[in-house]
């Protein structure tokens, strides 16, 4: 994946020089390891700030909402699906965009890696499929496949679904992936067990809203949690308020979530917030044969009506 960067720079420089775009949205090196940050490149000279490695897990579609400029955007498989969702939901126009597609082999999980070491990680470098972690008094090389983000390990759409430019050959999609094992396990729990399970899952939540802010779907001008008239949900860290926030947020993402993993990546407490959105993703697939962001041609299940929509829950 490291080889992509020269191509990304070359394409970005060309687009900016020719004036085809006002800016390119990509990644630059973050101030701490494993945290590359989004950046807006507006001049050909700044193109050299761009980077690409296995720490580009943030979903860049998040930065497109309601923009008026012409934009070049670097897009992995998941970003491209969220760009499609943005176009379908009228948050950006297709002809404003030059999509620089990046076939992706997965991003590494900073929570997982940090948990392996007791002291602070100072340098992370990668070469092919090896990740080398360095800190004071230790150095360790890991296999990339062992430290992938959970959603990347289960990813079945690594290649961008729409793109105008492509920075490398398409990669093989992962086959025979069981995406929903954890969800099925939760589904078999009794109501009391579920209650305890989610209590434990969310016990660390500090209501920082990092998951919401990282999510490209959460673009409402005023989020339901910030609304005060009416106040839909309490603003405390009472377990009930926390639970209400997470469940409602997940429902707002039903039929739209692409499992890009930005929410889980952003969570400072390492909560597996994808368990909520993935349940809805599973339902959409099973009930409506729907995967979000795969095509511009079809409307999502929640804004279409079919007489044969499943309605077994209505008695």
């Amino acid at each position: 994946m490291l080889a992509y960067i020269e191509k990304i720079k070359e394409i970005s420089r060309r687009l900016l020089q020719e004036g085809n775009v006002d800016m390119v949205i990509g990644f630059r090196r973050g101030t701490v390891p494993m945290m590359n940050e989004p950046c807006f490149v507006k001049t050909p000279e700044d193109v050299d700030n761009l980077v690409w490695d296995s720490n580009c897990g943030i979903n860049l579609a998040n930065y497109l909402t309601n923009r008026q400029e012409k934009i070049g955007i670097v897009a992995k498989g998941c970003d491209s699906r969220n760009i499609v969702t943005h176009i379908i939901e009228n948050k950006i126009k297709r002809d404003q965009l030059v999509i620089i597609g990046v076939p992706c082999k997965g991003m590494i999980d900073r929570h997982k890696i940090q948990a392996m070491f007791e002291t602070e990680i100072e340098h992370v470098t990668e070469l092919d499929d090896k990740i080398t972690i360095k800190g004071v008094g230790f150095e360790k090389t890991l296999e990339k496949k062992d430290v992938l983000q959970d959603n990347c390990a289960l990813c079945i759409h690594r290649n961008p679904v729409i793109h105008d430019e492509l920075v490398g050959d398409l990669v093989d999609e992962q086959k025979n992936i069981d995406r929903y094992k954890d969800i099925r396990n939760i589904e078999t729990l009794s109501p009391e067990e579920k209650w305890r399970y989610f209590d434990n899952l969310l016990s660390a939540c500090i209501r920082c809203y990092a998951c919401r802010n990282a999510c490209p779907l959460c673009y409402c001008p005023t989020c339901f949690v910030d609304e005060s008239r009416p106040q839909w949900v309490g603003k405390s860290i009472d377990p009930i308020d926390i639970r209400t926030f997470h469940f409602l947020r997940a429902y707002h993402c039903a039929g739209r979530c692409t499992d890009c993993g930005s929410c889980e990546r952003a969570c400072p407490m390492g909560i597996k917030v994808r368990l909520f959105t993935k349940k809805l993703e599973k339902d959409c697939l099973e009930l409506f044969d729907w995967e979000a962001g795969m095509t511009l041609e079809k409307r999502p299940p929640l804004d279409t009506y079919r007489p044969d929509d499943p309605d077994d829950f209505i008695k």
């Binding site: 109501p191 009391e192 067990e193 209650w195 399970y197 469940f247 209505i314 008695k315």
Partner: peptide
């Protein structure tokens, strides 16, 4: 989410 099934009911009337 851990609510007893009997507490929630949907009907078309």
């Amino acid at each position: 989410m851990g609510i007893e099934p009997g507490r929630l009911h949907f009907s078309w009337i």
